[in-house]
Simulated scan of single mutants.
Amino acid sequence: MPIIKHNPAALFPQYRCYSHATEIRGDSRLLIISGLNGYMADGVTMPESFEEQAEIIWGHIRTLLHSAGMDMSHLVSLRTYLADPKYDEANVRMRIKHLGAYEPSSTVVCCQLLDPKWKLEVEAMAAM
């Protein structure tokens, strides 16, 4: 199943670790991952820092992908909700750390999250 990135020159330059659109062709499986936050396995404990919460979330994403027989290269879309715009640069660093040069479609939204402890929440879609 080909996954094709669309970053036409007629659009503004793509951001780091990002594609404007991702096309999936052929028969495929689609995994839709609900918004994840930085809770540890006990469902109660959450570290204070943005970086620690983000590491936990990326671990959750990996675990869910693995449970579906997928890996990071199957991600086609990410939506990240940041509790504060000040976390943008740290968020980009985390994406680069976990995705390397891979560039799924992506949106980042700054908003008030459900719990004031949460620094970010991430939704994802993967296909194969």
Rank of each mutant, 00 (worst) to 15 (best):
M128G: 13
N37M: 10
F50D: 01
R93D: 10
D84N: 11
A124W: 05
K97Y: 02
V76D: 06
D115E: 08
P8C: 01
T80A: 10
M128A: 13
Y87M: 04
Q112H: 03
I32H: 10
D88P: 02
I3G: 02
M46A: 06
E23L: 06
C110K: 02
E121R: 15
Q53Y: 02
I56D: 04
Q112Y: 01
L75H: 07
H60C: 08
S77T: 08
S34L: 04
I56A: 07
I4D: 09
V122D: 04
R62I: 04
G35Y: 07
M1H: 13
S106Y: 12
S67C: 00
R25G: 10
M72G: 01
E48I: 12
C111N: 03
C110Y: 07
A124I: 01
S19D: 04
S34E: 11
L114V: 11
L82Y: 05
I96H: 06
L113I: 06
L82R: 06
F12V: 14
N37S: 15
S19M: 01
R29V: 13
V109C: 06
P85T: 00
A124P: 04
D42A: 05
N37T: 15
S77E: 14
A10F: 15
N91V: 00
H66C: 07
L31V: 09
G69R: 07
W58Q: 05
A10P: 06
V44Y: 05
N7A: 03
H98P: 00
Y87P: 01
L99K: 04
E55A: 13
Q14H: 10
G43D: 03
W58S: 01
G59H: 03
E121C: 15
A90L: 07
S49W: 04
M94R: 11
M125G: 08
Y87Q: 02
I57Y: 00
E55S: 10
T63E: 14
I61E: 02
A126T: 02
M40I: 05
T80Q: 12
F50V: 00
A124M: 04
K97M: 03
F12T: 15
P2H: 08
E55Q: 12
D88Q: 14
I4N: 10
M1S: 12
C17T: 14
A41W: 08
Q14Y: 09
Y81N: 10
E89F: 11
S19H: 00
D88C: 12
R29L: 14
I56S: 06
E48Y: 11
K86Y: 04
R29A: 12
L64N: 12
S28T: 15
E51G: 11
A9F: 14
L75T: 04
I4P: 01
S19I: 01
S19E: 04
K117H: 13
K97E: 07
L120H: 03
P116K: 09
M125I: 14
D84T: 03
D42Y: 09
D84Y: 03
E123L: 12
E121I: 11
M46V: 09
S67G: 04
Y102H: 14
F12H: 14
L36A: 06
S73T: 14
L36P: 06
P104G: 01
R16W: 06
T80D: 10
C110W: 02
